[in-house]
Simulated assay, not measured.
Amino acid sequence: MVPTHEEMHLALTQRHGATLQAKFDAGRVAICGLGGLGSNVAIALARAGVGQLHLIDFDRVDLTNLNRQQYTVDQLGRYKTEALAETLERIAPYCTLRMDTVKATEDNLPVLLAGDDIICEAFDVPEAKAMLVSGVLEHVPEKYLVAASGMAGLGSANTICTRRAFGRLYLCGDEASDVSDGLGLVSARVAVCAAHQANMILRLLAGETEP
């Protein structure tokens, strides 16, 4: 039996306290890219009771995604927005989900992100990462942006950290490791970086601006 909204909210309030949970309730977070980073970030935020998640990705679930992304074999071939929304609805049925199955571009960013307070950059491709960061800084500089750089390989998880780059831009990762160096993306280390991003987003929702 699915618990009521009131029952789930009470359980979250008991864990987080009423004041903090109210801030999470009011959160509106865009997750740009729903791969190894974004799918893990979305689940962490949904479990924390963030009120609205905006899922943005144009890709479909592929067999090569299953080593690190929060999808299942029966979801192969489906759009990631739809597959992840299905999972999130099972975890947090009262979370408001917005889905845009589109490719984010510098031209559509201002409209695409208009209703969001915090933006999570979770793309796999360096060019897409750079586009989103520069686009947000140029078009919507008033919004917080939590980006990621460096999580490949099996290096120590302790090298992954969160820092405030400048203004409202935060970077999570080791800022060095790259798949172009022949290093693969391994689920555990990618998940560590995603947890850093999710934690920073929750801190920002709570009013904490330092990493």
Rank of each mutant, 00 (worst) to 15 (best):
residue 163 R to Q: 12
residue 77 G to Q: 01
residue 2 V to S: 09
residue 112 L to H: 09
residue 126 P to Q: 06
residue 181 D to W: 03
residue 115 G to H: 07
residue 106 E to I: 09
residue 72 T to M: 07
residue 148 A to G: 14
residue 89 E to Q: 14
residue 69 Q to M: 07
residue 86 E to T: 15
residue 169 L to R: 06
residue 149 S to K: 11
residue 104 A to L: 14
residue 140 V to W: 02
residue 115 G to L: 01
residue 127 E to M: 06
residue 108 N to Y: 03
residue 88 L to R: 02
residue 7 E to M: 11
residue 118 I to M: 00
residue 4 T to M: 06
residue 75 Q to I: 11
residue 12 L to G: 08
residue 65 N to M: 04
residue 143 K to Q: 06
residue 34 L to C: 12
residue 182 G to L: 09
residue 191 A to M: 05
residue 132 L to M: 08
residue 175 E to L: 08
residue 208 E to I: 14
residue 157 A to V: 12
residue 110 P to T: 15
residue 136 V to H: 03
residue 96 T to G: 01
residue 131 M to E: 03
residue 168 R to C: 06
residue 189 R to V: 08
residue 46 A to W: 01
residue 180 S to T: 15
residue 90 R to A: 12
residue 12 L to V: 10
residue 42 A to T: 15
residue 82 E to Y: 01
residue 91 I to S: 08
residue 16 H to P: 05
residue 207 G to S: 04
residue 87 T to H: 10
residue 198 A to C: 04
residue 191 A to Y: 00
residue 188 A to G: 06
residue 155 G to Q: 10
residue 131 M to I: 03
residue 182 G to A: 09
residue 1 M to C: 08
residue 47 R to P: 08
residue 157 A to D: 10
residue 104 A to C: 12
residue 189 R to Y: 03
residue 6 E to W: 02
residue 106 E to Y: 01
residue 104 A to G: 03
residue 149 S to V: 11
residue 66 L to W: 02
residue 204 L to M: 07
residue 47 R to I: 13
residue 22 A to V: 11
residue 110 P to D: 13
residue 97 L to S: 07
residue 76 L to M: 11
residue 196 H to A: 07
residue 1 M to L: 12
residue 29 V to W: 05
residue 65 N to P: 04
residue 184 G to I: 09
residue 89 E to D: 09
residue 46 A to F: 02
residue 47 R to K: 13
residue 102 V to Y: 02
residue 20 L to R: 14
residue 55 L to M: 04
residue 211 P to I: 09
residue 13 T to H: 05
residue 166 F to N: 14
residue 193 C to S: 08
residue 81 T to M: 02
residue 180 S to I: 12
residue 185 L to Y: 01
residue 202 L to D: 02
residue 126 P to K: 02
residue 3 P to G: 11
residue 53 L to F: 03
residue 199 N to H: 10
residue 79 Y to E: 15
residue 175 E to F: 04
residue 7 E to G: 06
residue 159 T to L: 06
residue 113 L to W: 07
residue 143 K to P: 07
residue 13 T to L: 05
residue 32 C to E: 08
residue 142 E to A: 10
residue 154 L to F: 03
residue 125 V to S: 05
residue 34 L to R: 11
residue 127 E to H: 04
residue 145 L to C: 09
residue 144 Y to G: 02
residue 52 Q to G: 04
residue 20 L to D: 12
